[in-house]
Design a protein around this nucleic acid. Structure first.
Length: 456
RNA sequence: GCAGGUGUAGUUCAGUGGUAGAACAUUAGCCUUCCAAGCUAAUUACGCGGGUUCGAUUCCCGUCACCUGCUCCA
């Protein structure tokens, strides 16, 4: 099998209806993508399996769904308002881009960067005659502030008081609700709160199809534990994440865990690891597992003046819980699943494209295929029965072989064929995608059979 | 944002200063009863906007989008 190229994958996904370019008829909008009829099913299935593993089957965890718009003070507390303003300059000579504060820090180690107001960085850059590290030239553009948060306004009047941000991460929706969640669920630490939703970052360089976009979905778990126990929970959730990916059939040779080096860590972090996947364009982060200490709750305590301590009912100890945060990008997960599932199988006469998707996440579980259009009525009956339980599709045009191929291309794990014997024996033929094997089965047994086969 | 590349049906490709062809795909009909059959029709494209020109898909400029690299990613 030839190695999958990225363009091949993108072509396949856009031409089958998994993904479309955003606002396509208007010439598109940079780096926006829509999920088509197949994509939305996949996405929903991924959310469902993730929620099942991390909420339904994890008695320690519960869920929350918080608003995208939050009080702007939230982002002051987290430091996003401040640190999202990177002072960037371009070298006019060699066209490279740099952070002005970092240039100054590197060239003048004795200077205290934190004392320089952001507006003055450009002047300092000039006065100190700091050179471009790449070409040595002194010709920089003015500083341009890139606030990575999308800004908008509440109400119709746009002034500073009405500014709100689109959340750059879903995590804060959990932290600000920490007290309410704990009180209403009466959960004892350790417990976790799962959240799925959209987040927005005005990335400087998006790209690689749906891998890095400015609008994306996150599936995050904030797991609260007693300080001192975070190391073992960190490992625990890291293992759980890997198990989840393997349970979806991701090939382990395409997965690796990369621990961040101490220099790489955010100042509050006690450890971060990325689960990376080998995409057709290279290794890319899919899931970040971060040990965030009590940073977030502490910050919110300070800024909101609310007491976010947890009182351990057994020991009467009062403490701010530590947090382990496995944060998964849904769009990246989907892209990973699709990259991993795409295969071209060379048969005797020709080649078929197969998406070897795990049955639990395949857009369509079952395709109903009448062998002849005369069998339409009976087929519709079978479809009505199955569609109450499973996402099914129906196809009556073209030869049966062609219809099997169509389903292979989009990852449908099972085809149910209605033939002329069906009327007599009340049975159908099940054709399995991966083995291409066939099985005769009474219609009455189908639901039980597929419930087992499609279980996740 | 910078540099380079690309842009013709859904896909893969032709082609031309006088508004475009094919294959596959799609739809309908005939035929066909379990792994891309055949036959007959049909639908669908020059990314967008300017300029030059009698006339632009073709030449020029701009723009938009995608790809690669750089920079960035709390």
């Amino acid at each position: 099998m030839n190695p999958l190229t990225f363009e091949q994958l993108v072509t396949h996904l856009t031409s089958t209806g998994f993904v479309f370019q955003g606002s396509e008829i208007y010439g598109g909008l940079s780096n926006t993508w829509d999920y088509g009829p197949l994509g939305v099913e996949l996405i929903n299935n991924l959310k469902r399996t993730w929620w099942k593993k991390f909420v339904q089957e994890s008695p320690m965890n519960i869920g929350v769904d918080s608003a995208i718009l939050m009080n702007p003070r939230v982002w002051e507390a987290t430091g996003h308002v401040a640190t999202f303003n990177d002072p960037l300059v371009d070298c006019k000579n060699c066209k490279t881009r740099h952070r002005a504060d970092q240039l100054i820090a590197a060239a003048r180690p004795n200077m205290d960067i934190s004392k320089i107001p952001a507006q003055a960085l450009g002047t300092v850059l000039k006065d100190e005659k700091i050179a471009c590290p790449k070409c040595g030239s002194h010709d920089f553009t003015d500083i341009r502030q890139f606030n990575m948060m999308f800004k908008t306004h509440i109400g119709v009047i746009e002034d500073a008081k009405t500014v709100v941000y689109l959340r750059p991460e879903t995590a804060q929706g959990v932290f600000v609700n920490f007290k309410s969640i704990q009180r209403t669920t009466r959960k004892k630490v350790p417990f976790g709160v799962a959240s799925v939703g959209k987040a927005f970052r005005n990335e400087i360089t998006p790209g690689n199809f749906t891998f890095r976009t400015r609008e994306f979905s996150q599936m995050e778990l904030e797991f609260f534990c007693k300080p001192g126990t975070e190391a073992s929970w960190y490992k625990f959730w890291q293992d759980a994440c890997m198990q989840y990916l393997t349970s979806l059939g991701i090939q382990s040779k395409h997965l690796r865990i990369r621990e961040h080096s101490p220099e790489e860590l955010a100042f509050y972090s006690k450890g971060t690891s990325d689960i990376e996947y080998q995409f057709p364009f290279g290794w890319g982060e899919v899931w970040g597992i971060a040990s965030r200490t009590d940073y977030d709750l502490k910050q919110h305590m300070q800024f909101s003046k609310e007491d976010l301590h947890y009182l351990d009912p057994e020991t009467n100890e009062k403490y701010i819980p530590y947090v382990i945060e496995p944060s998964l990008g849904l769009d990246r997960l989907a892209l990973m699943i699709l990259s991993d599932a795409y295969q071209e199988e060379v048969l005797e006469k020709d080649t078929r494209v197969v998406l070897k998707l795990h049955p639990a996440i395949a857009p369509y579980k079952i395709a109903i295929l009448p062998l002849s259009k005369q069998l339409n009525e009976k087929s519709q009956e079978v479809m009505t029965i199955l569609s109450k339980h499973f996402m099914v599709t129906y196809d009556e045009s073209g030869s049966i072989g062609k219809r099997y191929r169509r389903q292979d291309m989009i990852g449908t794990p099972y085809c149910v064929t209605i033939d002329f014997d069906t009327q007599n024996d009340q049975s159908v033929t099940i054709r399995e995608r991966d083995s291409m094997k066939q099985l005769r089965m009474p219609i009455d047994d189908l639901i039980r059979y597929f419930n087992v086969k499609l279980f996740y």
